[in-house]
């Protein structure tokens, strides 16, 4: 994990691409729709969440690809430690460089949509819970399509449908808090998804990697 962080720092451009993609996609909506605050406020959570998902898809291809090509992945499989623990470390490092910047940038972008302070707070919490789950679920897809030609498109087809629950509860949490229903129910469901993903995704990813390298 430490190694992945060092590598990411050496390759700052990769991190910045994801972040700028996210910022630009989110900023395009107010420009395209116009200055009606009511409409913008209504679509804000959905837009931010969809953009976050697309931006993390962009980074997903790099999760194992480099290690696969230079043989490091083989060495990971030959490490005496359980592979799922190594995978978990890798995914967390990946989240720290691709997911965390998005989370931190999101409240700022929310301001463009005229979101209230309370809405921004809930948006932040929902992204903190949701984006690690996205990274974890995406890792399974990335591992399965490793070394396959056109893997990038395939991984989107595989993984995007699995993101739907995260999207519904993530965007729904913000909406619920804005309409005064309270976001607790949505947020606890998001937390449950994250907990499940933490338990099962590394294990499934490890199994997928073994298949890909056989």
């Amino acid at each position: 994990m430490k190694r992945d962080l060092i590598l990411a720092v050496r390759r700052m451009s990769d991190v910045l691409t994801t972040l700028f993609f996210f910022i630009i996609v989110v900023s395009l909506f107010p420009l395209g729709i116009g200055p009606e605050v009511e409409i913008l406020r209504m679509i804000a959570p959905g837009v931010v969440w969809v953009a976050a998902i697309l931006a993390s898809m962009l980074a997903l291809g790099r999760l194992f690809e480099g290690d696969y090509r230079d043989g490091t992945l083989e060495q990971m499989l030959l490490a005496p430690q359980p592979l799922s623990v190594l995978v978990l470390g890798k995914v967390l490092a990946h989240w720290a460089v691709s997911g965390l910047p998005l989370v931190l940038m999101a409240p700022l972008l929310g301001l463009q949509f005229g979101m209230t302070a309370e809405g921004l707070g809930v948006l932040l919490v929902s992204l903190v819970l949701g984006t690690p789950a996205i990274s974890l679920i995406g890792a399974v897809g990335a591992a399965l399509t490793l070394g396959v030609r056109g893997g990038g498109v395939l991984v989107s087809l595989l993984v995007l449908p699995l993101y739907i629950p995260v999207l519904i509860f993530g965007a729904g949490a913000v909406e619920a808090s804005v309409t005064g229903l309270g976001a607790e129910a949505h947020l606890s469901l998001l937390g449950a998804i994250l907990a499940l993903a933490l338990c099962f995704a590394p294990w499934a990813t490890a199994a997928a990697l073994r298949i890909s390298l056989d």
Binding site: R3, D70, G71, E74, Q75
Partner: peptide, 12 residues
């Protein structure tokens, strides 16, 4: 095990 691929990271 040392394979064809050196398992080396070019940036390090």
């Amino acid at each position: 095990y040392l394979g064809h691929l050196g398992a080396l990271k070019g940036d390090l």
